[in-house]
Nucleic acid binder design. Structure first.
Length: 640
DNA sequence: ATAGGGTTAG
């Protein structure tokens, strides 16, 4: 820490101060050098002050320190001004930047030069401030600086990001001596404008390419879904850097091709945090949460420090796994490693993770503590409440969301309809459905209709559901019919059930689940002949009933729950009576409705009062894991 | 004499 003592063996001079500055690695060091500068009277030395402010821009979180030092300079030269402005561009608001620029322009003996503006234009482009950018462009023309390559590339970038491709092109054409950066910025501009052809044309016309231009073009191919074009270019590039690899990995991940993403990741010689992040988010977003967690551990074992992107991906994976133990560990890890839990993305992911892993109390607390609640966080809460059987609370949150002025989208509608249907809140479901179609004009998809069919079906309004499905303005998919068939099973309606089954057998002939549902309906009505006929039909088509194919941890949870309670019964071993009894309780709804406690629930299962079928086990398992953190699943091997 | 700037990745 004691920087001064280390370097003061030589005679104090400006060289010494510069050496001290060169050795500085943090604010603390700068403060020490600062006292030195004051003591030795270098406060008016432009060269030294410029270096000093430059380092403030690196180490200081805001512009306050740089500004206070700057204000002691009586006649700052253009270098010092430029460096100060760079700091403001990086760490302050656009308004403040303009204030400083104005001060610079009105001070005597200083004229802004080509170094003054690029960083300012960049901070405009960061926030898509087109108007402010145009003001600066005007100044650039007035000062005669608009044909400078540095100025030009920043302007092209700004106009490109703001989708003003014509302006960008005009700047591009005006620059007589174009370098690779100018070309690359223009290519990226066309990509923003959605014009892959023009981007490609420019790339082919470029007299000289470098890694960045190649990377930009890979990115363009990826963005327009041309993975093979991207790979071809990638393979042809003579110099590939981390960005090249990462862009390609990210491209594969976004296209859902995790095998190729992983292959490239393993082959890439130098990886950085973004390569890891691309891979992890790929696994998390393509429904492979276990792989994402594995990657995280691999990363830690290689001493790579995770950043907030990595943590968000990890939380996303955790949400899918519903593992409260992991969720708690992640939260603890983040607070131990001084992550800012109030950062929007982290806060949103935390709410989602806690909600989906069963800690609704924590989720609520985090949710209320958020500085701003957006659609996504509301959806996390609503979905969490829905999963845990708090349907009416979910509806309350939805209404609160609307009252806050947030405009619901198709995803939020799907979530709230599912919540209503689970909790049999038919009236509420329809109120929201109608509101969405009239007031908010949400675009309805077959999924939404499937939700409403499910809503009607579960509450016993089979005919209404049937009518709706027949009058849908969009083509109903198998999910909608399936929901209705499920409702037929629930309410033992043979007539409608048969009709729908036949439709489903045509729509998805390979789905044995539909046969099983119809078979269950016949069985419940003691129509064993029909059951037999159906079985025959299945085997004729070469279909076999696949017994409960839940994921292993659902089973593991059930078993470990039994072990935990020192119960000798293990429901997976307990035979259910072959002879059908009237359906008493539906396990899935019992659990999602949390009509009883877990102990009670297990007793009901063991007494066979509750029917547990293959699909239910999965959800029951999840709920058990969430409901009782003492049930650990890691101790168990996967159940085949 | 010196010093300050732009493009590509999650």
């Amino acid at each position: 820490m004691s920087l001064i003592r280390k370097c003061t063996s030589t005679k104090p001079s400006s060289i010494t101060v510069l050496n001290l500055l060169r050795e500085s690695r943090c604010i603390k060091h700068l403060e020490q050098v600062h006292t030195h500068i004051i003591q030795k009277g270098y406060e008016q030395d432009h060269f030294i002050i410029n270096q000093f402010i430059s380092l403030c821009n690196v180490f200081s979180p805001d512009v306050s320190y740089a500004t206070s030092v700057f204000e002691h300079v009586i006649q700052p030269n253009v270098y010092v001004w430029n460096t100060l402005i760079k700091g403001y561009s990086k760490k302050s608001s656009l308004v403040d930047c303009f204030v400083v620029l104005k001060q610079m322009r009105t001070s005597v003996n200083v004229i802004p030069d080509e170094f003054t503006f690029p960083s300012l234009v960049k901070s405009c482009s960061n926030v898509l401030a087109l108007k402010e950018g145009e003001i600066i462009h005007g100044l650039l023309v007035r000062y005669g600086l608009d044909s400078d390559v540095f100025v030009g590339s920043s302007l092209i970038d700004l106009y490109g990001k703001c989708k003003e491709i014509e302006y960008a092109r005009r700047v591009f054409d005006e620059i007589s001596l174009k370098n690779e950066v100018i070309w690359t910025a223009m290519i990226v501009g066309y990509v923003y404008a959605g014009d892959l052809l023009e981007a490609r044309k420019l790339f082919d016309e470029m007299p000289q390419r470098n890694v960045a231009s190649g990377n930009a073009m890979i990115r363009a191919f990826v963005k327009f879904g041309d993975l093979s074009g991207a790979k071809k270019l990638f393979d042809s590039m003579p110099d590939k850097d981390v960005v090249s690899f990462t862009t390609m990995i990210d491209g594969y991940a976004k296209a859902g091709d995790m095998a190729s993403a992983r292959f490239l990741f393993d082959r890439s010689s130098n990886r950085d945090i973004i390569s890891w992040s691309a891979l992890m988010s790929g696994y998390a977003q393509n429904g492979q949460p276990n792989e994402a967690v594995k990657i995280f551990h691999e990363m830690l074992s290689m001493n790579v420090r995770p950043d907030e992107f990595i943590m968000v991906s990890l939380m996303c994976a955790c949400s899918q796994l519903g593992r409260l133990d992991l969720a708690n560990w992640v939260e603890h890890y983040m607070s131990q490693n001084s992550f800012d839990l109030n950062q929007v993305h982290i806060a949103a992911a935390l709410v989602d993770m806690n909600a989906k892993c069963g800690n609704m109390e924590r989720a609520k607390m985090l949710f209320e503590g958020m500085p701003k609640r957006d659609l996504v966080s509301y959806c996390s809460m609503i979905q969490g409440l829905s999963i845990h059987g708090c349907g009416s609370q979910a509806v309350d949150f939805f209404d609160r969301m609307l009252n806050e002025g947030l405009v619901p989208d198709d995803v939020s509608l799907k979530i709230i309809l599912t919540a209503c249907s689970r909790a049999e809140l038919v009236k509420e479901g329809f109120r929201i459905f109608n509101l969405m179609t009239t007031k908010y004009s949400v675009k309805l998809s077959p999924d939404h209709y499937a939700c409403v069919v499910d809503l009607l079906g579960r509450s016993g309004k089979l005919q209404d559901a049937y009518e709706l499905i027949k009058s849908m303005p969009v083509e109903p998919h198998a999910g909608a019919w399936g929901a209705l068939l499920g409702a037929c099973k629930l309410h033992c309606d043979i007539e409608v059930g048969e009709e729908i089954s036949n439709r489903l057998f045509e729509l998805e002939p390979q789905n044995t689940g539909n046969y099983v549902l119809l078979s269950d309906i016949y069985a419940a009505a003691n129509r064993w002949l029909d059951v037999a006929l159906l079985r025959q039909k299945m085997s004729e088509k070469g279909l076999r009933k696949i017994p409960g194919c839940s994921s292993w941890y659902a089973f593991a949870a059930l078993i470990s729950f039994a072990i935990f309670n020192q119960s000798e019964h293990c429901i997976s071993k307990k035979p259910r009576p072959r002879h059908p009894q009237p359906v008493k309780l539906n396990a899935n709804r019992l659990v999602t409705g949390t009509l009883c406690g877990f102990d009670q629930f297990m007793n009901l299962v063991i007494d066979n009062t509750v029917e547990v079928n293959g699909n239910d086990k999965n959800e029951i398992g999840m709920v058990l894991i969430r409901g009782n953190s003492m049930v650990t699943i890691e101790a168990l091997e996967p159940v085949a």
